[in-house]
Design a protein around this nucleic acid. Structure first.
Length: 417
RNA sequence: GGAGGGGUGCCUGAGCGGUUAAAAGGGGCGGACUGUAAAUCCGCUGGCUAUGCCUACGUUGGUUCAAAUCCAACCCCCUCCA
């Protein structure tokens, strides 16, 4: 590792971000000599990014921390076409308003990891709709299309796999790589961006951008990808009960986010600490060495550090405290998700299954009833035995709330109002 | 344009007139064991205040006491030929 001259490359390598790079040596040299500008592209189909995007976000963070300038590219233009790689033919196309709302929501997430501004190493967020919207077909073909040979495009994995498996590949999709390459070239011209980073699945697209930059703009560009992060047992990261683990608090509460990291598999702790926290490497080495049940301490540190990074120091600490109360002391913690229920309604008596659904622990009354039948539902930590059991104001505990639980890990509070 | 094959629950994928809310696996949830881990084992996995009712097997009609299953038209997908 010591043979890397730049702090940037050094950091990426030792923390495990590096999967492939077009020319690591040259990039390293460049980063050691001067400030470089680099970007990662993100989709704007949802109002929040998810855990799967976190690796690249962290990479941008380190880029800035090591003295360079990050660009967050929002795919406002490409989103308008709709990503054809999904299987949903009937996917709804998003309106401009929706896309812009998504982008501003996503921007909030980035402010936790990057500092934006006008300085030399300040981050900027750009939208590819700014240039893609104005593209004219014939000029595009003449200026860009001539640099792409079908022969070469056919050799890319994304295309090749489809063809080999005899699955359809639409012209739209075929053009995606061209648009993405165009983005890179455009950013190179506008902002002197020399490096595109992304997940390993983006390798082909990144290469195309580099090629185009060289041919059409005569610039030397670099590409770098991160490994696909899976858990030690091979599962894709970030898929849980409710679906994706989102980064925006409206979608996924800080407490749940903390829990997500707390439940990391033993074998992943060290790797995740390096990737998803900014703890110093020697500290991580110490935590990684913990064995047996002691590794739980490392998981707590991981959870608190990762939550603090995204949602702020306070949220990290509060989540840790809530977890401590809930799991260790067995005390009702007020940091749990809380739902207000009118006092009068409570006094009249409400079925437990209805409440479970109301606070969001279950998705339907039927699911709640099954949970009760399976013995997984508890009120104030006492198992509910009757499927149709009702509770009333008597269930309000000393803390003035009613605690509902689905299984051992998922809890919610009811507050009379 | 011609000839075949197919569209099933979150996903993959059986069923091909009643015993089918629909096999099996995956995923998910819950339980046991643990360390809020992994592995393993067990249960659950459409909705509804519910011994019942209502929706569901591409869409719409039809045959039948009875249809995911048979027929017709339509939509979509795939393969081969042109």
């Amino acid at each position: 590792m010591s043979n890397n001259k730049s702090e940037f490359v050094q950091t990426l390598v030792e923390r495990g971000f590096l999967h492939q790079c077009t020319d690591l040596e040259a990039l390293d040299k460049r980063a050691a000599e001067s400030v470089i500008t680099s970007y990662v592209g993100y989709d704007a189909t949802a109002d929040s990014l998810h855990i799967g995007n976190l690796v690249s976000i962290m990479m941008l963070h380190w880029l800035q921390q090591t003295g360079h300038r990050p660009i967050v590219l929002m795919g406002g233009g490409t989103t308008k076409i709709g990503d054809p790689s999904g299987k949903d033919e009937t996917r709804q196309l998003l309106t401009d308003d929706r896309i812009n709302a998504n982008i501003s929501s996503i921007r909030e997430t980035f402010t936790s990891f990057l500092s934006f501004g006008d300085g030399e190493t300040d981050a900027m967020m750009v939208n590819n709709a700014d240039w893609l919207d104005e593209l004219a077909y014939i000029p595009l073909l003449r200026e860009i299309g001539r640099h792409f040979t079908i022969n070469r495009m056919l050799t890319f994995d994304s295309v090749k796999l489809r063809l080999e498996r005899e699955q359809p590949l639409t012209f739209l999709e075929f053009n995606y790589m061209i648009l993405q390459a165009y983005d890179f070239m455009e950013l190179a011209k506008r902002h002197d961006c020399v490096l595109q980073m992304g997940g390993s699945d983006q390798w082909g697209n990144i290469i195309n951008g580099i090629e185009l930059g060289r041919r059409a703009a005569e610039r030397e560009l670099f590409g770098l990808t991160t490994p696909l992060i899976t858990t030690a047992s091979g599962a894709k990261m970030g898929k849980t009960a409710a679906g994706a683990v989102w980064l925006r608090p409206e979608r996924y509460s800080p407490y749940d986010y903390w829990q997500f990291w707390r439940n990391t598999e033993d074998a992943d702790v060290g790797r995740f600490l390096k990737l998803f926290t900014i703890l110093p490497m020697d500290e991580i080495a110490r935590l990684e060495a913990l064995e047996g049940s002691e590794i739980n301490d490392a998981k707590k540190i991981l959870a608190t550090a990762a939550t603090a990074l995204l949602h702020g120091e306070d949220a990290g600490r509060e989540s840790a405290e809530t977890a401590e109360k809930t799991f260790v002391s067995g005390v009702t913690a007020d940091g749990l998700p809380t739902t207000d229920v009118p006092r009068a309604e409570l006094e009249g008596g409400i079925a437990v299954f209805a409440l479970l659904t109301r606070v969001g622990l279950t998705g339907s009354n039927g699911e709640a009833r099954r949970l009760i039948k399976g013995g997984g539902a508890r009120v104030n930590d006492v198992a509910v035995s009757q499927e149709t059991a009702e509770i009333n104001a008597d269930a309000i505990n000393d803390d003035g709330v009613i605690k509902l639980s689905a299984g051992k890990k998922r809890h919610a509070l009811i507050r009379p109002a």
